[in-house]
Design a binder for these strands. Structure first.
Length: 362
DNA sequence: AACGCGGGGGA
DNA sequence: TCCCCAGCGTT
């Protein structure tokens, strides 16, 4: 016996009426967002990358600035990665920016600067997964492909009474298969965006506004009064905590030492005051380390405090040590000596902004 | 399938 | 606090 889909659509579900009601509502109620000005595939693409795991209101100013600075694929393809990261500074998930930059260069090199409207070619681009692929195809190219994100899984788990764990990867493919079969063929753009808009404005995680919902009559969870029990989602595990020491080192000429983070992992290619794991370096061993490793004498001048920063998978505690370098000879440390007022030209992660604020307050 | 990857909004 | 957000790449 062959493996069948693990869900079944409610018998009375009328997908055509659902589609019609959804699209009519969307066309009337949709928000005026900057990436809805036109169907420029590059513009849609940038917006979809920025919107990954990031709320609309957060994205708007970044999107406007980014499109102003890089209006076409050619502008972005020619940019330096450091400048692209600077434009992304504060938005988070910086690999999105690096992948988008790489992918845009690929589009210029391989596709003559035209964002491909082909399903397989689109998916090959760095940073384009199944959701973004479907979003670009439907919104920019009017192709009937599903674009299943968190909103869509929440909405459709309620409408169709699907109680599979949406935290599991397989569940998304289930939704994609179902939606591909039932979605509007005439207006996939408004269908997909309508589902997401509905999830954002009406069918919210807590306290869904069912009395305002345009598809209430189609919703099986509402009919059974279990809409707040869906979707089913297993809990993420708690973050680990890590402690670091940030060294704000002032050279004899009054400049400060900063370093570039590695080109992979957390905050890749962003800049920071030299950062040490506290399990390796406490206050005194840091002084010894500079003595033995670099033959440099440093003197701690202040301890302005500690910064806490929460990531999705780890919590950082960063102790700040301000010190002076006691010699004029150059330090063989992988980094740059800069005036503090030029620090703003480097892409800095938020945790380093917090360190900087601590310095100016004290 | 599980994990690493930012930062912020809202209850 | 906790959950969630127009997810993707790597392992």
């Amino acid at each position: 016996m062959s493996k069948t889909s693990s869900i079944s659509i409610p018998v009375l579900f009328d997908h055509q009426a659902f589609s019609r009601d959804l699209i009519v509502w969307y066309e009337k109620q949709k928000r005026n967002l900057p990436w809805r000005d036109n169907q420029d595939p590059y513009r849609i693409w940038v917006s979809e990358i920025m919107l990954q795991q990031t709320q609309v209101d957060t994205v708007i100013p970044y999107f406007k600035h980014f499109m102003n600075r890089y209006p076409t694929v050619y502008d972005l393809a020619q940019a330096d990665e450091q400048d692209v990261l600077k434009a992304w500074e504060g938005l988070g998930y910086y690999s999105r920016a690096r992948n988008l930059h790489e992918a845009v260069k690929e589009v210029v090199a391989t596709y003559g600067g035209e964002v491909p409207g082909d399903k397989k070619e689109l998916k090959k681009l760095k940073g384009v997964g199944s959701y973004t692929q479907g979003a670009i195809l439907s919104i920019a190219f009017d192709q009937a492909e599903p674009a299943v994100d968190g909103n869509v899984m929440r909405v459709m788990s309620r409408v169709l009474m699907i109680d599979e764990d949406i935290a599991k990867p397989k569940t998304k493919t289930v939704f994609e298969d179902v939606i591909r079969d039932i979605m509007s063929q005439d207006n996939p753009s408004s269908y997909n965006q309508g589902l997401m808009e509905l999830g954002a404005l009406i069918c919210q995680p807590k306290n869904p506004k069912c009395d305002e919902c345009p598809v209430q009559t189609h919703c099986e969870a509402y009919a059974q009064g279990v809409q707040t029990d869906l979707p089913v989602k297993s809990k993420a595990k708690k973050q680990k905590e890590e402690t670091y020491v940030a060294l704000v080192l002032r050279g004899a000429d009054g400049r400060y030492l900063i370093e570039k983070r590695p080109d992979n992992g957390l905050l890749a290619n962003l800049w920071q005051f030299p950062l040490f794991s506290q399990s390796e370096f406490d206050e005194t061993s840091l002084i010894n380390h500079f003595e033995t490793q670099y033959g440099a004498s440093i003197t701690i001048t202040s301890r302005p405090g500690r910064v806490k920063h929460v990531y999705s998978h780890v919590i950082w505690h960063v102790d700040i040590i301000v010190a002076e370098l006691n010699e004029a000879k150059p330090l063989d440390y992988e980094g740059e000596w800069i005036d503090l007022n030029t620090l703003s030209t480097y892409p800095l992660p938020n945790v380093q902004q917090k360190v900087l604020e601590k310095l100016s307050v004290n």
